[in-house]
């Protein structure tokens, strides 16, 4: 299978005159084309830093990231779409205009970008809401627009940084199903960062567990649940066993404080 993302002994140190912070250390992982991969870990384990490095938004201190065989030197909007935790829609633009934005930056012809944006709005299930302003949309709808904005450039990889973290559990579960549907329809490679163990298992082919101080990969866990996934699987024995395993890995790393942080 073709490698979509390949990370080789990646490290990141945040320079500081007194106490430099080793955020990431010797991260190695690879994601095959079309895979759904999650990275889970406690808050502060550097998962978002990792995502931003892969997306070319910040520089690594050591190691290398290859995207489709080419080293990452900066943002690659045509190849990688990033979906952030908060939808980050430009509040003065309609949903449709927000989805058009990446094409506008690429100077795509006006009628063509309108057409593509409308298709994406349709794909994420927001047909008829294109002319709404972000403040007129619910949290889940905003995140759908944000996903549509990511998909409109037809990237091969979609990276998501806790995209459903700000949503309530019911919406979150539904968005997970939506994401699976979109993934199956578009055949993208998805790299999802989350702190929800269930979400990671439910959605992914492979889950990477991260520990903190410094942020590193503890283990690669393959999710041996059949596809398509259904909500009933969450109650299955396999699901419970996987969830326990992830939990033990993270808690034995000392990443989970005994009381609330």
């Amino acid at each position: 299978m073709q490698r979509s993302i390949e990370i080789k002994s990646l490290g990141k140190v945040y320079q500081h005159p007194v106490r430099p912070l080793q955020a990431l250390s010797r991260i190695s992982l690879s994601v095959a084309q079309g895979q759904f991969v999650s990275i889970v870990g406690a808050s502060g384990c550097g998962k978002s830093t990792l995502l931003q490095i892969v997306a070319g938004l910040i520089e690594a201190s050591e190691g290398e990231v290859l995207v489709e065989g080419a080293p990452v030197t900066g943002p690659m909007p045509g190849k990688i779409a990033v979906v952030f935790q908060d939808a980050l829609l430009l509040p003065w633009r309609s949903a449709l205009a927000n989805v058009e934005l990446p094409l506008e930056l690429k100077r795509v012809d006006k009628s063509l970008r309108r057409k593509k944006a409308e298709e994406m709005i349709e794909l994420v299930g927001l047909g008829g809401f294109g002319d709404r302003l972000p403040h007129e949309l619910s949290g889940g709808m905003k995140q759908r627009v944000s996903i549509a904005r990511g998909l409109v450039q037809d990237p091969s990889i979609v990276m998501m940084d806790e995209p459903f973290g700000a949503l309530d559990e019911l919406t979150r579960t539904r968005m997970g199903d939506e994401l699976l549907r979109i993934w199956e329809a578009t055949q993208k490679t998805i790299l999802l960062i989350t702190h929800s163990l269930s979400e990671a298992i439910y959605l992914s082919d492979t889950v990477y567990v991260m520990g903190r101080d410094p942020g590193r990969i503890l283990e690669q866990v393959t999710v041996d649940l059949p596809r398509p996934r259904t909500i009933d699987m969450m109650g299955s024995e396999t699901f419970g066993r996987l969830r326990n395993r992830l939990w033990k890995l993270i808690s034995s790393d000392g990443s989970i404080p005994s009381s609330d942080e």
Binding site: P75, G78, V82, F84, L90, L101, L105
Partner: peptide
């Protein structure tokens, strides 16, 4: 500042980043 990160991830830089994402 997150809008700057967003703009960069969408391939904007320099004056366009400023004009489309920051100025408004």
């Amino acid at each position: 500042r997150r809008f700057v990160t967003l703009g960069r991830s969408l391939g904007a830089s320099g004056p366009r980043l400023y004009w489309k994402f920051v100025f408004p």
